[in-house]
Computed example of a mutant assay.
Amino acid sequence: MMEKLYLQPLTLVAGPQLVDGDALRIAGGLAYAREFALVVVRDGVVISRDVTTPRGMDDAIARLPAGLASEAIQQWADLQIVHAPLKMGERVIRLDQPQIMGILNVTPDSFSDGGKFLDDPEAAHAHAADMLEGGAAIIDIGGESTRPGAAAVWEGDEVKRVVPAVERCAAMGAAISVDTRRASVMKASLAAGAHLINDVSALRHDPRSLGLAANSGAPVVLMHAPGEGEDLHCKAGYGNVVFEVFDWLRLARDRALAAGIARENIILDPGLGFGKSVADNLALMNALELFHALGQPLLLGVSRKRFIGALSNEAPAHERLGGSVALALRGMQAGYQLLRVHDVRDTVQARNVWRGLRDAAVTDFGGLVA
């Protein structure tokens, strides 16, 4: 029988001064956690859950079964890692606050924009410029739809779609991410001015990708998706989706480290919507803070996702703004550093208001108002 340990932040507070300093600043950001659960799982079944605050953490770790203390110590340290900024060309993207990644699809069959930017370079250019003006820190360019049932794209066609868009965005001085599973597209995009590789297959789809990413020195996003090959949305039949996604991402991180990718260049994404039911997605959203225990910057991509429609009388993709912003705010609350969105201006406005609330909370040393 195998036992595993998960150190999960449970309750968040507006600022540490409200609980006499007995709270932890997560990942050097604006999220402060007060209570934590040390969860022990044996063969997929939770056998114990010990809840404590930071001041009681040493004692709680001492109460763990033999062999799990070192893992708890590591996860506790990883929760507190302050992540260095991402260096993306002339831009430096700070990770001590939420940053917005704007989506630019140059595909004929995107679930969200219907391919309107594929055959109209000027429209794509204007959209990217508008996202930058609206506050996007990064433009994420993709030439292959990853919606369920989308047709596979030949890598030559993907290069033809993506590279011109990368070049136009590079000419604007943008920080650029390329959303691709193929090494040839990664290589061509980096040569054209992209700075970050965002791979929904976590560098598994193309056997050349790991080596290319390591040699490039570029940051990479490794996303959870249960499927392999062309079907990333294959249902996984989770026992506990939260812990299983955590384990999967830990393996993806370690695989990247073993291939020579620097730890500071690895960003993790729990892959909302990929091979997950509505219940699975909601479970992950309610446990977002746990993934900081992997010690990496985190990306959340929930914009206009299908499960928003499922919770909103089957609203179509273009009518999911409210749900998208609600989920983005949940990601900010959980301390996620990167939020991948379609509606940049609305999300940036929500972020700025949220940031004002957080700044006011952590600088208010007067305590609670009677």
Results as ranks from 00 to 15, higher is better:
75 Q>N: 05
145 S>E: 04
116 K>A: 09
99 Q>A: 08
285 M>P: 00
368 L>M: 11
101 M>K: 02
256 A>D: 09
198 N>W: 03
85 P>F: 03
88 M>Y: 00
323 G>D: 14
300 L>A: 05
211 G>S: 02
70 S>W: 01
297 P>A: 01
230 E>I: 02
209 S>T: 10
184 S>W: 00
199 D>L: 14
232 L>K: 08
34 R>A: 04
3 E>K: 14
234 C>P: 00
46 V>I: 14
115 G>Y: 09
22 D>M: 04
86 L>D: 03
75 Q>K: 09
72 A>V: 10
57 M>R: 00
54 P>D: 09
35 E>F: 08
296 Q>V: 14
171 A>Q: 12
16 P>M: 03
19 V>C: 09
231 D>H: 14
344 V>N: 05
322 G>Y: 08
157 D>N: 13
60 A>W: 13
359 D>A: 14
260 G>N: 07
19 V>L: 06
356 G>Y: 04
368 L>R: 12
288 L>V: 10
140 D>H: 09
29 G>W: 07
336 Y>S: 08
340 R>T: 04
314 E>S: 14
14 A>W: 06
84 A>N: 07
99 Q>R: 15
210 L>T: 03
9 P>M: 04
106 V>E: 01
224 H>T: 05
359 D>F: 13
219 P>V: 07
100 I>F: 06
306 R>P: 05
135 G>S: 07
259 A>I: 11
16 P>L: 01
192 A>T: 06
351 R>T: 14
217 G>M: 11
22 D>Y: 10
167 E>G: 05
239 G>P: 00
50 D>Q: 13
14 A>Q: 12
182 R>L: 13
334 A>Y: 12
196 L>T: 01
13 V>G: 10
131 M>I: 12
335 G>Q: 09
314 E>T: 02
294 L>R: 00
336 Y>C: 12
108 P>Y: 09
77 A>P: 00
218 A>G: 11
220 V>Y: 01
104 L>A: 02
165 A>N: 07
82 V>P: 01
288 L>P: 02
25 R>I: 00
114 G>Y: 11
222 L>Y: 05
90 E>I: 06
358 R>G: 09
60 A>E: 14
278 V>K: 13
126 A>T: 13
308 I>S: 03
129 A>E: 14
26 I>R: 00
222 L>N: 06
98 P>Q: 05
299 L>R: 08
368 L>I: 11
